[in-house]
């Protein structure tokens, strides 16, 4: 028995310290798959699966993760797994949920809860799969959707998606002589999911593994739709070195360009502390080839936008109330 098990109270107080000992050693996403060195997404999936546990069915949209993990006749998946197409993992996942529910109710399968979890990249979630995601969340299936956002169509060769950040250079929104990369701001999908009245919405990154896994566990327990937007570094697409994968996720949080928060029943909460004086966005941008062309003025524009987005989020954190607490107040 390790120290963590002997002193459970202590563990809760120092959860981050002891958590590595509590994380399942079981591997549901096996090594030997074909992801690039330093792939944030493959790491995130491995952690997600550990947090989900065995009673899970994964529906995978077409993308890097399907390609690197399921080259017939091999598979990296030690969980029931299905891939159908690019735009429909949320719809397929909703069918998985409906099928399992009906079969369980009718006594045709074991009487225990098996969670349907659909996953996709930013393109498969925010662009081509957006309608299916909206439908599945709105219909209140008991399912979790996790978007692994590496901010472009990496599988097809770094083309711009609606997850691509402002001014990033991609192969379809390149930093040209006249136009310096992507011309619009990143779509805020977590916020759109909050607007769907999804009971649990969170942002995460594998750079904070315990935070991410806690969110996955929480989302799994929700009896209804839940959404996690997981920010993952892509060294290949970001033109960053593979060993900076974790560091970039941390910098994204510390600069406030991708803050880690959760929205539970409508109540916003920051889950990972950010220093009072946030680091300048420059620290995050500088290690990445996709931002190499930025001028100091352009970086300033990005900094101002982040400051305003940050303040907006702080206002929500300060003023939002859970629907439960609003109900309680009405009945008083």
């Amino acid at each position: 028995m390790n120290t963590a098990m002997k002193n459970p109270k202590n563990v809760i107080e120092n959860f981050d310290l002891y958590a590595p000992k509590l994380v399942s050693k079981e591997e549901f996403f096996s090594p030997g798959h074909r992801a690039c060195q330093g792939c944030g997404e493959a790491l995130a999936i491995r952690l997600m699966c550990k947090a989900l546990g065995k009673d899970t069915v994964i529906t995978n949209a077409t993308g890097c993760m399907e390609v690197i993990s399921s080259l017939y006749p091999t598979t990296a998946w030690n969980l029931p797994w299905i891939h159908v197409a690019f735009p429909n993992s949320a719809a397929v996942g909703s069918g998985v949920e409906a099928g399992l529910k009906a079969l369980r109710r009718k006594g045709k399968i074991a009487d225990r809860r098996v969670k349907s979890v659909a996953i996709g990249g930013d393109g498969g979630t925010m662009d081509i799969g957006f309608q299916a995601l909206s439908g599945a969340m709105e219909r209140c299936h008991d399912m979790l959707y996790v978007c692994f956002d590496n901010e472009a169509y990496m599988n097809t060769g770094i083309q711009r998606s609606s997850g691509t950040p402002f001014l990033a250079s991609t192969t379809t929104a390149p930093a040209g002589k006249k136009i310096p990369g992507n011309q619009v701001w990143k779509k805020n999908l977590p916020e759109i999911m909050v607007a769907h009245n999804v009971a649990y919405v969170a942002t995460a990154t594998p750079s904070y593994p315990i935070d991410f896994m806690n969110k996955v566990k929480k989302a799994r327990q929700i009896k209804g739709p839940a959404y996690i937007h997981c920010f993952v570094a892509c060294p290949t697409g970001w033109r960053s070195t593979s060993e900076t994968c974790i560091q970039l996720g941390r910098l994204a949080n510390e600069t406030g360009i991708f803050p880690l928060y959760e929205v539970e029943d409508g109540k916003y909460r920051l889950t990972v502390e950010v220093p009072e004086k946030r680091r300048p966005v420059q620290d995050y941008l500088k290690g990445q080839g996709r931002f190499r062309h930025l001028t100091p003025d352009q970086i300033q524009v990005i900094q101002e936008r982040i400051d305003i987005e940050w303040e907006t989020l702080m206002i929500k954190i300060e003023h939002s109330r859970s629907k439960e607490s609003l109900r309680a107040r009405r009945s008083r």
Partner: peptide, 22 residues
């Protein structure tokens, strides 16, 4: 009965449920 938001999702959801054995 899944009130899907499109035919694309109708068949996609049908695949998901049929794949569970339903």
């Amino acid at each position: 009965f899944i009130t899907v938001e499109s035919e694309h999702s109708a068949l996609s959801a049908a695949i998901g449920s049929e794949a569970t054995g339903a």
